[in-house]
Design a protein around this nucleic acid. Sequence first.
DNA 1: GAAATACCTCATGTCGACACGATAAGCGTT
DNA 2: AACGCTTATCGTGTCGACATGAGGTATTTC
Lengths: 235, 235
Amino acid sequence: MAAADSPSTKPTRRRGSGVSTVYETLRNEIIDLTLAPGTPLEENQLSERFQMSRTPIREAILKLSADGLVTTLTNRSTIVSQIDLMDLSSYFDALTLMYRVNTRLAAEFATESDWERLEQLQAEYADAVERGDALAMITANREFHLAIADAGGNRYYRDLFKRLLDEGRRLLRLYYISFNDQIPREYSDQHEDQIQAIRNRDIALADQLAREHADQIVAQIQRYIAQDRRHNIPL
Amino acid sequence: MAAADSPSTKPTRRRGSGVSTVYETLRNEIIDLTLAPGTPLEENQLSERFQMSRTPIREAILKLSADGLVTTLTNRSTIVSQIDLMDLSSYFDALTLMYRVNTRLAAEFATESDWERLEQLQAEYADAVERGDALAMITANREFHLAIADAGGNRYYRDLFKRLLDEGRRLLRLYYISFNDQIPREYSDQHEDQIQAIRNRDIALADQLAREHADQIVAQIQRYIAQDRRHNIPL
DNA sequence: GAAATACCTCATGTCGACACGATAAGCGTT
DNA sequence: AACGCTTATCGTGTCGACATGAGGTATTTC
């Protein structure tokens, strides 16, 4: 029964791997702006690209849809979700709040191993800053903040924070572009201060730092967008 | 081409309706505890029940999984998610915070039409309380609070709030059971006070009321669970 | 020449079937 | 009799094909 006649035609990836492969690949491409907002995702095309049937593709797209990363028009193609500038204030508001509550919880509940993980991730971040590697910065930054959320231990806050960081990674990209991929040293140092506050279980200070950190990022992005918009005003 | 030979064999629901039908049906059954936590969901069985292929079933289950309502074990059956009592404090914490921020935003930004909608929903809620109809209470209560979130206008807060209300509807069920499906009048009145605070744009008061409302529900559920647990202590 | 209409194209929604993995059962061995 | 191995069974993961509905296009009419 083992019709192993043509092993070449069967790369036979592991059984349940199809969906997650497609999901993670597309997710990264969307977040890194490799796939621009508005880009249509055709199942057939993806099917050919990933060398698998439409079924896993479909399920991956469904997951992306649940994450809000793609928008699916019924009976019509699904496209990469737009970054809508209308909701920016909502976004910044939520991001700031999640920064704060997660940092507060981390200051309250983080354990020694959490501290170590934070310092390790911060080291990676600092290294990326040193090298001027924007992609690495974004990744490390995300990991750093997610680690804070993990240390805080609230699943719901963590999930929303993750969503905000992911959905906003496209915005964050703007943030780094606005510095020409060179983050001033002081911004990186903010992370260090946060770690210290968390270690000292100084909830008030941690909250304050988180708030400042968020405000700073928000202000920077807003400045960039305002500037960018000026160029796009149609006359 | 129109092979309408056997119209009886083709009830032919509308094209894209399959997934959402299954999704909403199962979702309600899970939330109403008709499907107890741990119940396995077999695709074949559901396929037969809903009279459609496994594909739409599969996609519906995937959406439920994204909502955290079901847990899928790879290559193994998917089951209705457990209500894990470990995360209760996280849950209550997040619920309280979402109560507060959404109510604050509503107090700040709600328009006249929002007020009207709130009063209408509150009337429905009061009516359900009057009749002692627990299911209607839960539904109306959910609608009421979601309306507040809508009035607040922050998509991210709204979505998390919705998730909390849904995921917690199973818990909320306990809340109502603890009153024997009879909500004391004063709790219902809290809604009225909230509407007033929102209308008066009294953010501080709205926040205070939201906090008290949430605290109250949390305390009640915790009391119920503590009581319930005492019976289950194994010796 | 412009608008409305009918047709055509094509991506999605749905279907039935097959393959693989994992558990459960049956068998043989020590 | 207990343990390990082989085999049966079941459900998921994946596949290719068909049906359907929504745009786009060409044609026709005013």
